[in-house]
Design a binder for these strands. Structure first.
Lengths: 140, 140
DNA sequence: CTATTTTTGCAACACTGTTGCAAATATTTT
DNA sequence: AAAATATTTGCAACAGTGTTGCAAAAATAG
């Protein structure tokens, strides 16, 4: 169980219905969800711009994490949920199934420490593996 | 020096001006380029749909490699050029500088072999590190 | 409860992705 | 090399997402 109120309070964002719903939806989901998948699960008919702005601000504040799957597809996750200890930016891989398009966090797969050339500074990483998931594989 | 003709011939694509220009542009560039960056370097005023279709087909045929930087940004490289031995899909990291937006292939950084859960099949990977490059760092 | 701040919905525009189709170009065949 | 065939191009058009400004609505602070 998570308290969405606390999350919003910590970063000084107002407690609006849409924000609480977004966090609940992502908390309930075992998969990373796209903006549109989130939109479909919202109870009321909210405006798409508002959703866009909320996903943006929640990501900027570090509450959500955005995974850049490909040009047409980016997904959001609640890292507080998937990572054990509340470590926001634990580096881990993401897997996208090219058949069912589902995206999973491979939280047990931490990439080795990235070594950048002299003088380069790392801020964030985005590691995606594309392939076929077990469920889709068994369908054939 | 590369022979763009051979590349196109190998995959049975017609030798059109735009295709030859695209390959030359990417061959000349030390950086991964976006669709728009390629468009700006084309000599004639080609149609954007044609460019889109050519980048798509060249990527599908394996001549170009597309790097998914983020939702608004994807870049193309000529892997034959950057990888030594003509190994197309050598897994390596990409680095995007968040100040100058340049994208470099970190060809000497090969990620350790990815281990997927039982029953999952890997097809492709896309690993991007975001940060600040040396040049931008020295400007401050 | 009122004043202030933040958020929402709407209109509007930009850019990229995407398709269908006819005209233009490239390739193959004779 | 010209004709026949196949491929590619440019254009129109539409969809989806990103993005901004602004007034109305909602949330928070006093």
């Amino acid at each position: 169980m998570m308290q969405t109120e606390k999350l919003l309070q910590n970063v000084r964002l107002s407690q609006t219905n849409m924000r609480k719903e977004i966090l609940d939806i992502l908390d309930d989901s075992s998969l990373a969800l796209s903006m549109n998948e989130i939109k479909l699960r919202l109870k009321s008919n909210y405006n798409r711009v508002t959703l866009y702005r909320n996903l943006k601000v929640l990501t900027e504040k570090g509450i959500l994490h955005q995974i850049h799957i490909d040009r047409q597809d980016s997904k959001y996750v609640l890292p507080l949920k998937t990572d054990k200890a509340g470590e926001h930016d634990q580096e881990h891989l993401h897997f996208k199934c090219l058949m069912c398009n589902e995206v999973k966090c491979l939280t047990d797969q931490h990439p080795e420490q990235v070594v950048l050339p002299e003088g380069y500074e790392k801020i964030e990483v985005n590691f995606v593996v594309y392939g076929i998931c077990r469920t889709c594989k068994n369908k054939n």
